[in-house]
Amino acid sequence: MDNQWQLQEAKSKFSHIVDRANEHGPQFLTRHGHKAAVVISFEDYQKMSAPEESLSDFLKMPPFADSDFDVFDRAKEVSRDIDL
């Protein structure tokens, strides 16, 4: 696999690995033969971390679209005194 790197090697070739992540996709780092980390491009990171829709769009979707938000009204009782 040309996108898998041992951690020791990755330390000395970090710039090269970042370039490969930008050009060829994710680069996988291993430690003692086990997967340890992944280097991805900033563009890929943004795609992964960006919400697919805005909060207002989410609230317009069922079950919120037809909801009567009055059910969330606050209780009308008087608050109690607390000794501090």
Rank of each mutant, 00 (worst) to 15 (best):
M1D: 13
M1H: 13
N3W: 05
Q4F: 09
Q4M: 12
Q4G: 06
W5P: 00
Q6L: 09
E9D: 08
E9Q: 08
A10T: 01
A10M: 02
S12K: 09
K13N: 12
S15F: 03
H16W: 02
I17E: 01
D19E: 10
D19P: 00
E23S: 13
E23H: 09
E23P: 02
P26K: 13
Q27N: 03
F28P: 00
F28S: 02
L29H: 07
L29N: 04
L29A: 02
R31G: 01
R31N: 08
G33A: 05
G33L: 11
H34L: 15
A36Q: 09
A36T: 05
A37Y: 04
V39W: 01
V39D: 01
I40Y: 01
D44F: 01
Y45L: 06
K47T: 12
K47F: 08
M48T: 08
S49G: 01
S49D: 06
E53W: 08
S54W: 05
S54A: 10
L55E: 10
L55I: 05
S56G: 05
S56Q: 13
D57C: 03
D57S: 13
F58G: 05
L59M: 15
F64G: 01
A65E: 12
D70S: 15
V71M: 14
F72P: 00
F72C: 03
R74F: 13
R74A: 14
R74C: 10
K76C: 03
K76H: 10
E77L: 13
E77C: 08
V78G: 09
D81K: 14
I82G: 02
D83Y: 10
L84F: 14
